[in-house]
Simulated scan of single mutants.
Amino acid sequence: MKPRCAVLDDYQGAALTSADWSPLADRIDVRVLREHLTDRDALVAAVEDCEILVVMRERTPVDAALLDRLPQLRLLVTSGMRNASVDVAAARARGVTVCGTASSSEPPTELTWALLLGLARHVPAEARALREGGPWQSTVGADLAGRTLGLVGLGKIGGRVARIGLAFGMDVHAWSPHLTEERAAEHGVRLAKDRRELLADSDFVSLHMVLSDRTRGLIGEPELRAMRPHAYLVNTSRAGLVDGAALLRALREGWIAGAGLDVFDTEPLPADDPLRSLPNVLALPHLGYVTKGNYARYFGQAVENIEAYLAGAPVRELT
């Protein structure tokens, strides 16, 4: 019997068309699950016969409890080389190899600017009014040139966002716990002395930090209250960086002008979540890394990982 492989959370039905799976056609049985299964029993029932799972980063958590219910699992392939929702140590202890793939930083950089520009120029409201026969020009957009962009995090993505901000003629400053003046200067930006100063001085704030115990809730009520009433917050990184309850209050009570969000504590976002309906929120369904190029990398290298596994030599193994 051929090994069985399941691809989880393939929302767009793109997994099998984004890469050439033909080298595996006669070697494994592949099934694709397009619906996100939040119920653990339903998930186990759908994949418990599988030796191989292909998961999209942080869509379905794979923890020790789930691994215990999947005794046939031997290979787990995740998009990207870091997946906080996979317990790699628990997998290894159960004889499961965890492999990753390349992931480009350009797509989330580009989407960050899609959100920021959409907020600044009220693109959703104006596009909706035009389509529905509403008023012709009902808003006045915010300028970018000469305004201040604050970056919380200046890593691979944050650095790219900084360069684009500078190209728009913005004054860019950045902060993270270990950011130095020298590193900031390499990107042509100023170093803020602390995150409160950065938030208080910025017209636009964009978050680009890895979520950890240290950074969870980094932006809470004091930080949001420190922001200017006309300022916008953009988060394409991780929802846990921001205190969700405090953000709702900030948006409802006008502490800030609005937020552009691509990440949420619960995904898919529940139908009744207020973030879906607040007028000063521009929200997208976690599209930061979702491009044809990245999908080609993810699923193309997933195929390579599976081929190597079947040959007894997995590649791109997570540590």
Rank of each mutant, 00 (worst) to 15 (best):
V290D: 15
R190C: 08
A167F: 06
G188L: 08
A93Y: 01
L76I: 04
P71D: 06
A42E: 15
L70F: 01
L151C: 02
D68C: 03
H122G: 03
L149A: 00
A311L: 12
L116C: 01
A46P: 10
R214L: 06
E132D: 15
T101L: 09
R163E: 14
T60D: 10
C50T: 04
G240P: 08
T101P: 07
V62P: 00
L53A: 10
A200Y: 07
H230Q: 11
D29E: 15
E267V: 13
H187V: 04
L111I: 09
P222R: 02
G13A: 05
M56K: 04
E106M: 09
L67A: 10
N305Q: 09
R40S: 12
A313F: 05
L75F: 07
R216Q: 14
V47C: 01
M209H: 07
G155V: 09
V62K: 04
P279N: 13
R74A: 06
G80P: 08
P268M: 06
D171H: 14
A246Q: 08
A239S: 13
I157F: 06
N294I: 05
L116P: 01
D10M: 05
E58P: 06
L166D: 06
L66C: 04
T97K: 02
A226L: 02
W136D: 01
L130D: 00
D26K: 10
L207W: 01
T109L: 12
D272S: 14
R163H: 13
G159F: 05
G300M: 12
W175P: 07
